[in-house]
């Protein structure tokens, strides 16, 4: 031991020396520095945590915003679709109404036109009668009694004489509806006479309608059920033509 220089006294001195340095360094250097390090570590951990939280909040906000935008988009889409549907419906409605209205106008116009035609034909009846008489005067050479002429003409057109239908001689009707067609519109008086006569002849009480067909030229056709009594001038002319042939 002595050769190695190992000595209890020196050993103790060195150990105590270390102890002194240890105590001083621990008090002056290690404890403050460890505190500083711990504080720094804590602060770093705190800031990392804060950053993480902020990041989380940001992501949440982003997700929220995305959700809101999505919702808004969906709502907007719904609204647009509804509006389009509404518009379609409205448009269809308007078109339907317009069509309806157009049809109505068309029908009104048709009815008006028919009425107008009837009126014109009624007006024409007088003129036709005058023309026919004038032509007959020229043809016969003598003037007929004016009143008689008129009666003739009326009879020609309406087939009614003395409160009876001239063309129907002792015949009876059977049927629900009766359609009376004439070349020119009949007067109200004539219509009444016709109706009365038809009712008198028919069994039951059929409904009597009147129609105008200029192609008949004169006389009447009476359609009862499926039977047609044709006393029109055009048919008589055709029969006359057949006979002559």
């Amino acid at each position: 031991m002595e050769a190695l220089g190992l000595n209890l006294g020196y050993l103790l001195v060195q150990i105590l020396n270390f102890a002194i340095v240890f105590v001083v360094l621990r008090a002056w250097v290690y404890k403050p520095i460890v505190n500083v390090l711990e504080n720094r570590k804590k602060k770093i951990a705190q800031s990392l945590e804060d950053a993480r939280k902020a990041e989380e909040a940001r992501q949440n906000a982003e997700a929220e915003a995305a959700k809101i935008i999505d919702e808004a988009r969906g709502k907007a889409k719904d609204i647009v679709r509804e509006a389009a549907e509404q518009a379609d419906l409205t448009a269809k409605d308007i078109i339907e109404k317009a069509k309806q209205r157009a049809k109505e106008i068309h029908q009104e116009a048709l009815a008006e036109a028919g009425e107008e035609k009837n009126r014109i034909l009624a007006d024409m009846r007088g003129q036709v009668a005058a023309l026919a008489i004038a032509a007959a005067q020229k043809l016969i050479g003598s003037a007929l009694d004016e009143k008689r002429q008129k009666a003739l003409v009326d009879e020609f057109f309406s087939g009614v004489k003395g409160g009876k239908i001239v063309v129907l001689e002792g015949e009876g009707f059977e049927g629900e509806t009766v359609l009376v067609s004439s070349a020119l519109p009949l007067t109200e008086a004539e219509k009444k006479v016709l109706e009365k006569d038809i009712l008198k002849r028919s069994k039951g009480e059929p409904e009597v309608n009147f129609a105008v067909d200029p192609t008949l030229l004169g006389g009447l056709t009476i359609k009862v059920g499926d039977k047609v009594y044709d006393y029109s001038v055009s048919t008589q002319l055709a029969e006359l033509g057949n006979m002559m042939n």
Partner: peptide
């Protein structure tokens, strides 16, 4: 050993002052 102690004490003082 005394010199080492002195150097370490000076280091400790410097660090302590800075802290």
């Amino acid at each position: 050993a005394v010199l080492v102690d002195l150097i370490l004490l000076i280091i400790a003082l410097v660090v302590r002052k800075a802290l």
